[in-house]
């Protein structure tokens, strides 16, 4: 049966792969830039080059993935115009600025063999701002109560910092940050699980039929599907998402912490932990979308 007669499942945002990849990769990339800009690693210059390239690769890979989400990617350049009001526009500008500054920084570093701290600081700051603005794209949406909170930037920023720390081999910081991420994420979930109810939107307020009894969908407007249903009225089993939360936490923080505390982290193990962490982040991002209930679901009988 099509959507009209869905049962007691969670009706949430569609976890589009392009967006999950985008936020995961770019988060890690910009997180790495933050660390490289502030605390450049010592050692041979090719290491700096490789890590800089990884950072740039992740960030631009993420940005490219985000283009896949666009209906008209050829017009993406127009997105740079509305920085006064739009976080998406700001993010675009900041991302380009960051990539530029960081490339300059990395270029100078490789060319001169020494990192330039002022440029690095600027690049770090820009990368940080980029991550914040990515988060703010989501956090600014009142229509998705779970996202509409400081927890969203908190999670995005910690996750970028943690990923960056892991990638750049800042083991101690990484341990603190992954632990922090886990805690913040758990807190964000606790807050977020009640966000929809607290936001005060219901089928009654959505239809203006408050005070007249329980409002139930009898018939959907169309038996066919539509853009809204696909994009924002995605059906997820509740139990499914609970299980994924645990798995995500284990991958994002559990494994890195356990192994990081028990063993000395060399390149091999480090790489594994990065993979574990980033896989965890992918799941977190999947959950970020798949658990985010949009108030428009109310019109289609959600809640």
């Amino acid at each position: 049966m099509a959507r009209p007669y869905v049962g007691a499942a969670l009706i949430a945002m569609h976890p589009a792969p392009s967006l999950i990849v985008f936020t995961t990769l770019s988060g890690a990339g910009f997180g790495l830039m933050i660390w490289l800009g502030l605390a450049p690693m010592d050692g041979e210059i090719w290491v700096a080059a490789v890590f800089s390239l990884i950072a740039l690769g992740l960030a631009s890979g993420g940005l490219l993935a985000s283009l896949a989400h666009l209906g008209r990617p050829e017009r993406a350049w127009k997105a740079l115009s509305q920085w006064r009001s739009s976080w998406l526009s700001r993010e675009g500008i900041l991302a380009i600025l960051t990539v530029g500054l960081f490339s300059l920084y990395a270029g100078l570093w490789v060319a001169s063999g020494r990192p330039a701290p002022i440029v690095g600081g600027l690049a770090s700051a820009a990368a940080f701002a980029t991550v914040v603005s990515t988060a703010m794209i989501y956090a600014s949406l009142k229509s998705i109560p779970r996202w509409h909170s400081p927890w969203t930037p908190a999670v995005f920023v910690t996750s970028a910092l943690a990923g960056g720390a892991l990638l750049s081999g800042q083991v101690l910081a990484a341990l603190f940050l992954t632990a922090g991420l886990a805690l913040i994420q758990v807190a964000a979930w606790r807050w977020g699980d009640g966000a929809f109810a607290r936001a005060g939107s219901s089928r009654s307020t959505a239809t203006g039929l408050a005070g007249r009894g329980e409002v139930r969908q009898l018939e959907p407007p169309h038996t066919g599907s539509n853009y809204l249903l696909r994009e924002m009225v995605h059906v997820v089993g509740r139990r499914h998402s609970r299980r994924l939360r645990v798995i995500a936490l284990v991958l994002v923080a559990g494994l890195p912490l356990t192994f990081g505390l028990l063993f000395t982290v060399g390149h091999g193990l480090g790489a594994l932990l990065v993979v574990s962490h980033l896989t965890g982040v992918v799941i977190l991002r999947w959950l970020f979308f798949a658990e985010a209930e949009h108030v428009v679901g109310l019109y289609y009988g959600a809640r």
Binding site: G71, R75, S143, Y227, L228, V295
Partner: peptide
């Protein structure tokens, strides 16, 4: 002519009033 079809405006609308055209890919 300016729309890049990102869909963010549709997300921002609480009322589900915006739909991306499935063929033209503009809002």
């Amino acid at each position: 002519d300016d729309c890049m079809g990102c869909g963010l405006c549709a997300w921002a609308c609480p009322y589900g009033a915006r739909e991306l055209d499935p063929i033209e890919n503009v809002m």
